[in-house]
Design a protein around this nucleic acid. Structure first.
Length: 300
DNA sequence: AAACAGAGCAACCGCGTTTTC
DNA sequence: GGAAAACGCGGTTGCTCTGTT
């Protein structure tokens, strides 16, 4: 059983893509469409593994990729979605047109994590307990960077600090990612839900669309009217997203579960959140009321 | 000016899930 | 129904750039 690693083939290019490779891949995908990643490199004349091609296309070459800085609205939305979904980057990316899961993951790890840590430091009424718990993540981050450096140095020096690192490992309890199998929602290129306009060209993704179309495999389309709405996120911010907002996600899920009557996945998700909220180890600010209302509405 | 450290991000890797045969 | 292949996701790595000493 098991699969042979697709990139183990000898003679395949690795590392940064050249403009020539980009051009070949773009040309091929434009001519033949996405998919068949395994056989694509051969057909396109690329010395890359299919996985690498897919990644390059999805994260960089797709024409609908929005490049440039993350806006404040997107920033807020990412934080809010992360509080709801955890590290489900592709789901989060699906709510941000033109953004990729990889981009959001990187942005979270490099910007938002620090931002939230800063906020927590300034806002928290610090107790001794908090002071002990909070730096864990921060230290972990720094540790990673330090480890990279150490590894580099180790390479030079020929030493190995792995045993020491093992001792120092700090256990951080984070929710285990579970896939929402039951949600057969249409996906964007990045593998997440998509939302479509009511126009004849239903495949075109549009920003600020007014309807959310929710297709499942039985062709039971669930269409939710979605209006722009200012709301409070429970953290004291007012939101008026031009982008797809969290409310839409709730509505989509609500509609879906109403249709199929499957609450098992939501129950699991809710259990996961409850466990997390009960765990004092993460010292992480959850908007529990928001989460609870989300699940309550689906269970009623 | 050189060395070092940290930040940012593209790309890789491993594994779980889904699809195909 | 089971095995293999394909796909997709999240975590991690390592390279490059920039700022600091």
């Amino acid at each position: 059983m098991g699969r042979a690693p697709c990139c183990a083939k000898v003679g395949l290019h690795k590392g940064p893509w050249t403009t020539k490779e980009d051009a070949l891949l773009t040309k091929y995908v434009q001519a033949h469409g996405e998919g068949q990643w395994k056989s694509l490199p051969k057909k396109a004349g690329l010395l890359r593994c299919g996985k690498s091609c897919r990644l390059r296309w999805m994260n960089y070459l797709r024409p609908d990729i929005k490049r440039g800085n993350i806006t404040q609205e997107e920033d807020d939305l990412i934080i809010r979605l992360h509080s709801l979904l955890g590290n489900r980057w592709s789901l989060i990316a699906g709510r941000l047109p033109g953004r990729t899961d990889n981009e959001i993951k990187n942005y979270w790890n490099t910007h938002l994590l620090k931002k939230m840590q800063r906020n927590q430091q300034t806002c928290d009424v610090t107790t001794d307990h908090d002071e002990q718990e909070q730096p864990k993540k921060k230290n972990n981050n720094k540790k990673k960077k330090r480890n990279n450096k150490e590894k580099k140095n180790d390479k030079k020096k020929g030493t190995n600090n792995d045993d020491k690192e093992e001792e120092e490992k700090i256990q951080v309890y984070l929710p285990k990612a579970i896939r929402i199998k039951a949600l057969n929602l249409p996906r964007t290129d990045s593998g997440s839900f998509t939302y479509e306009s009511n126009s004849s060209n239903g495949s075109q993704q549009k920003e600020g669309t007014q309807q959310v179309t929710n297709n499942n495999n039985n062709n039971n389309n669930v269409v939710c009217e979605v209006g722009e709405k200012g709301e409070n996120d429970g953290f004291g911010h007012d939101y008026d997203y031009d982008l797809v907002n969290v409310e839409r996600l709730e509505m989509e899920c609500e509609s879906y579960f109403d249709t199929c009557g499957d609450h098992g996945t939501l129950d699991r998700l809710y259990d996961e959140y409850l466990q997390l909220l009960n765990m004092d180890v993460c010292n992480y600010e959850f908007d529990s009321s928001f989460v609870e209302s989300f699940f309550d509405s689906n269970n009623n």
